[in-house]
Design a binder for these strands. Sequence first.
DNA 1: CCAATTTAATTTGCTTTTCGAATTTAAGTT
DNA 2: AACTTAAATTCGAAAAGCAAATTAAATTGG
Lengths: 400, 400
Amino acid sequence: MVFGHQKIESRRLLLREIAQRGPVPRIDLAEHTGISRATVTSVTADLLRGRLIEEVPRESRSDESARGRPRVDLKIAGDAHLIAGLKVSDRSISLVLMRFDGTHVADHECPIPTGRLTPIDLATHIRDGLRALAEKAGHDLSDISGVGVGLAGVVDADHGLVYWSPSLDQRNVPFGEVLSDTLGVAVYLDNDANLVAMAELTFGLGKSHSDFIVITIESGVGMGMVLGGQLYRGTRGCGAEFGHTKVHLDGALCRCGQRGCLEAYVADYALVREASSVGGMSLTTPTSQAVSTVLKAAKDGDPTARTVVERAGKMFAMGLANLVNIFDPELVILAGEQMQFDHLYADTVIEEMRKSIVEIDKPAPEVVVHKWGNLMWAQGAAAYALEFVQDTAVGALEDA
Amino acid sequence: MVFGHQKIESRRLLLREIAQRGPVPRIDLAEHTGISRATVTSVTADLLRGRLIEEVPRESRSDESARGRPRVDLKIAGDAHLIAGLKVSDRSISLVLMRFDGTHVADHECPIPTGRLTPIDLATHIRDGLRALAEKAGHDLSDISGVGVGLAGVVDADHGLVYWSPSLDQRNVPFGEVLSDTLGVAVYLDNDANLVAMAELTFGLGKSHSDFIVITIESGVGMGMVLGGQLYRGTRGCGAEFGHTKVHLDGALCRCGQRGCLEAYVADYALVREASSVGGMSLTTPTSQAVSTVLKAAKDGDPTARTVVERAGKMFAMGLANLVNIFDPELVILAGEQMQFDHLYADTVIEEMRKSIVEIDKPAPEVVVHKWGNLMWAQGAAAYALEFVQDTAVGALEDA
DNA sequence: CCAATTTAATTTGCTTTTCGAATTTAAGTT
DNA sequence: AACTTAAATTCGAAAAGCAAATTAAATTGG
């Protein structure tokens, strides 16, 4: 048939719908998908038989009539599969384990040597981390149905190919393959910039929005885009390089070697560099501490520090405004874990952005700040893997 | 059925495929779409019966064996429908008439009063223009199956609503409705920035690329995006405002009232303004002539003019690089009709852009310059309408 | 407490759509 | 003229989904 096996297609569609809407009765599924009630009954029967979903009694609500046959909610069967997600950063790996319904099972953090590793070494560290993670929950590595992996650098997610990553000592590594060989489990690789967007799409505001962008600030500035309910990756797989968007002609030097990058004004190292070179501040302390010093000085009214911090805010607002002007999203999510960057998330910055976007009668996009924890990335990786595991599970359903 | 009437869906799919690939034999259609040969035969039979496509003898090629039953090419039946496209600009309307297969029938240009018009007035001018256009080809307005209309401003294409346009004296006009009432023909409205992208998608490089951006320079700077083979409009329908992307904090004043917009450095009025305010050039002549003067002076080595023009180029390169960094497209198309902007399309500018994008192992996106004629916009509008006419025609096919 | 009512879910029979395999068609080749 | 090759068509069967009818599970009212 045209669209592959169609029955599989509607199974997939309904499974996704149930995953997204949480417990939901059949009649609502029919309503929202446009599939007839008869077919919903038959398809959900298949899913129930395969133990991918389960029926749960519905608690009565005041807003719906209590008469008639009561609705029966369907939800994803949490125990159907285990999914892991992890992100590799410079000195550690963060991991989470979740059930098929996205609920949290365990998390873990394990240190790795700093600097570049061989693919085999990194794969081994990941395997050890996953084993420890599984053990925490009384499981075995082989119980896991899929592992999502986020890696900094340039990654071709479709082919599991790593063009370049700060974590690896080689270029053009088929790391997806290496990893799944090492683990004996299906591995889904992606650029880490996309992970937070994925996490938002699956567990966050994606439930109610289909076009949004997510900005993350850590050491660098990252970005993920969701367009039409789908993660958009560029064509070369190198994610959206918002941090290296130019905000000043021949401006400040960026660690990427170019000039005028947004990152060169707002990243931690940029703040410290400026404050120490211009002001009398001698900052020989490590970066993270030095940043706090600069921010505190700015708050306390030190004029140099204040200028530096204010300019960072203005540049950030300008970069954001450019994004909004180009994409016209419904929503902009600023995600981060560190209080360090509060100055970029400040109302004044957002106000500044609003003033820089093209005005029309419709309201400007909503801006929300999400302070996620450290596991945000790993959870996004798991969300990414979850999609594949869902599809695989649907494909593996036997016919009656 | 799940996806609406499926037969209609496969008819639509095959018609699009034929439209895009030009004359193509059935077996290739089956190959490319994944539809079985049996079904291709039956569906194309329907399309043939409805006279939407026709069989043409295939010229023999050296690269395919001449044995066996020869392939029979299918192509869109040009005479099935007439489609018009038009764009409203400040002092005239440009129109084209094309056949169902996209071939040119006639074009026309008619002046309109400058300044804002009432919706009814503008609709009347459009009707008159269309009548003149149809007459040129020996047709009547009522022979036209669909009209695509491009309007500057903020347009909600899905609802035919014009939030604001420099051509209209009112806001929030349901202009699509007004027009189709006036014309008695189906009207499809869109923001003009999208039209060139549409034209490229349908008649230009869209045949071989699915992710690209199109930049247009006239008086302002416009942009259209094609992502995944589809035109991307923002969520508020206000097109991609590349021209009002900020390239300098608190920079030059733009006619939109904000500061530092790209347009404020590269648009015609910006060049003239700078050259006259700084240099000794007194430019009281009309803008288009003044621009030529500045450009000529720059070429002849006048230092002031040269600085102005060079900076425009650098700013443009920076804006382009930002786009590439964010989208990572396969291709960037610079489209324009006026030789005036050659300085922006120069190799040095493109080279400058290449130096400002994030480097990875894969090659940078291709950049091509398309010097289309004045009718580019109108043709894009027609291409937009063509899609709808195709779908309508498929939907109207009677069953055997 | 039982009949009527209401609403959700399921079953039944049928239609639509597509496909695979066999067949036909239209050429070239020997 | 008989054979080969490859495209297109035909034909019977299977898949998938739907509408309408039916069944199920609750509340409400007398």
